[in-house]
Design a binder for these strands. Structure first.
Length: 420
RNA sequence: GGAGGAAUGGCAGAGUGGUCGAAUGCGGCGGUCUUGAAAACCGUUGUACCGCGAGGUACCGGGGGUUCGAAUCCCUCUUCCUCCGCCA
């Protein structure tokens, strides 16, 4: 959520920058400006009247002490009159503030300076795309059947489409990847968190999932909880309504959780196999930083994730997202994709973003230095999302009757190959 | 799930209708003293909003109500504690 005063004071710049995200904001900002003026006028009058009532009440108190009951009764009447003159002011103010809120929540975050108004994502780096596959090479959805790693039919039976059952070495591979990612993150100074998988609406609001994107989340009506679409939600909300000491920053959290996404309406060949499912495993990294250093932090996170992908010996590329592809809350995002040789497709496995103050403003997450309080910057990234890593790894490393695993991962799996 | 109790500033803890935005202690910040530090002493110390400013308004778990006036009374929700029940 952007700050209303900032929007109004920097109207022209904000409008221009939001166009980079393909968001036309002129009208909405002008409406905001008008509403804000109305708001201030009402507040001024209302607070003046309230202060009058407060004064009268004080006098009444004194008169009561002096037993001047009649004088007090007179003042009471006066006070009631003032209160009656409020009219609809209070409800008007309430309505205006609601309208302001609604509008401001519809405005996306401002993209970072270097994001240009282009529709092409910039490829920052591309590594090791050459893979030895043959005519007989299978896509991962065939491989997982052949080697009995993941059972989608079983998931259909137990739950429904998009809830795979990992079996045997497929299950062990999941657990090994999770451990590998967590250990890499912990080595890099991240504190491990196991958060709740269900969150309340305040938490979903804090990181920006509601009101705009509530259709991606499963919602438990009876208790009004949401299943988390990413551990970013509970983990970032650890610090909701906190003021942190400047010298305690940055705060670095890592967390493995299953993630639940409704992915309404997406069926077809793009979602075959592990490409897109309703429940998947992901390890996340989150950082809360001093606003002055957040872009340095973003780079550090990108380097860290790149290091993990290198250890997995997967072909990958890093994209710097264009304005059009930036998410609602993000100022700058780098996407990581791994190459899936049989599908001949790049698969997104991580998205690393700096949200600047967009989340912290909703979260009321501040930093204190000397006597000054300022909003922190929040950042997060996947390190990493498992299904597509598994898909690419299986496809790229397949041999005749087995699938090889990267050395670094073997320490965790305890086996070098997946065999029949 | 049932019965009872509680929620106050960074923390601890007073306050049960009127100079209470809130005593006191601890902590924090500034100072005196000291070669330096500690101790002691003095001062200071919440947030948001409106206003050029003086100043004002709101906030004592959340929401609503009673009243001229609410931390204090009433309703409701949430969370915590004690007891009972159930339970991995």
């Amino acid at each position: 959520m952007l700050d209303i005063n900032y929007i109004i004071e920097n109207k022209e710049i904000v409008i221009k920058k939001l166009l980079v995200k393909n968001f036309e904001s002129k009208e909405i900002i002008e409406e905001l400006e008008l509403l804000n003026k109305k708001r201030k006028i009402i507040i001024k009058e209302l607070e003046y009247k309230r202060s009058e009532i407060n004064n009268i009440s004080k006098k009444i108190g004194e008169l009561f002490k002096e037993k001047k009951i009649q004088d007090a009764a007179k003042l009471k009447e006066e006070s009631v009159n003032i209160k009656n003159s409020f009219g609809d002011m209070e409800s008007n103010l309430f309505n205006i503030e609601n309208k302001i809120n609604d509008k401001i929540l519809r405005i996306p975050n401002i993209p970072e300076e270097s994001v240009k108004n282009q529709t092409e994502n910039e490829i920052i780096k591309e590594k090791n795309k050459k893979i030895n596959i043959t005519e007989e090479s299978l896509p991962h959805w065939e491989l997982i059947k052949k080697f009995k790693l993941v059972d989608f039919e079983l998931g259909n039976k137990i739950t429904g489409s998009g809830f795979p059952v990992y079996t045997n070495k497929g299950a062990k591979l999941q657990r090994s990847l999770i451990n590998f990612f967590l250990e890499e993150n912990i080595k890099a100074g991240y504190e491990e968190i196991i958060p709740p998988l269900l969150v309340n609406k305040e938490s979903a609001f804090g990181t920006g999932q509601i009101p705009d994107k509530d259709e991606v989340m499963y919602h438990i009506e009876r208790d009004n909880f949401y299943l988390i679409p990413t551990s970013e939600v509970p983990v970032t909300n650890i610090l909701r309504d906190k003021t942190l000491e400047k010298e305690n920053l940055p705060i670095k959290y890592t967390s493995y959780t299953p993630c639940f996404r409704r992915e309404a309406g997406s069926y077809g060949k793009d979602v075959r196999g592990l490409n897109r499912i309703h429940q998947f495993d992901k390890v996340e990294i989150v950082q809360i930083t001093n606003p002055e250093t957040s872009y340095k932090t973003l780079q550090e996170m990108v380097n860290h994730i790149e290091g993990i992908l290198m250890k997995l010996e997967l072909p990958y590329r890093i994209l710097r997202l264009c304005g059009k592809d930036l998410s609602f809350a993000s100022s700058l995002t780098y996407d990581f994709e791994v190459y899936s040789a049989v599908q001949k497709k790049w698969l997104e496995v991580s998205s690393v973003s700096n949200f600047e103050t967009f989340q912290s403003n909703r979260l009321n997450l501040k930093m204190k230095s000397k006597s000054k309080k300022t909003l922190c910057h929040t950042l997060n990234g996947s390190s990493l999302a498992l299904p597509r890593i598994v898909a690419a790894m299986l496809e790229n490393n397949q041999q005749k009757n087995k699938i090889g695993l990267p050395k670094e991962l073997q320490k965790y799996t305890g086996f070098e190959f997946i065999e029949k």
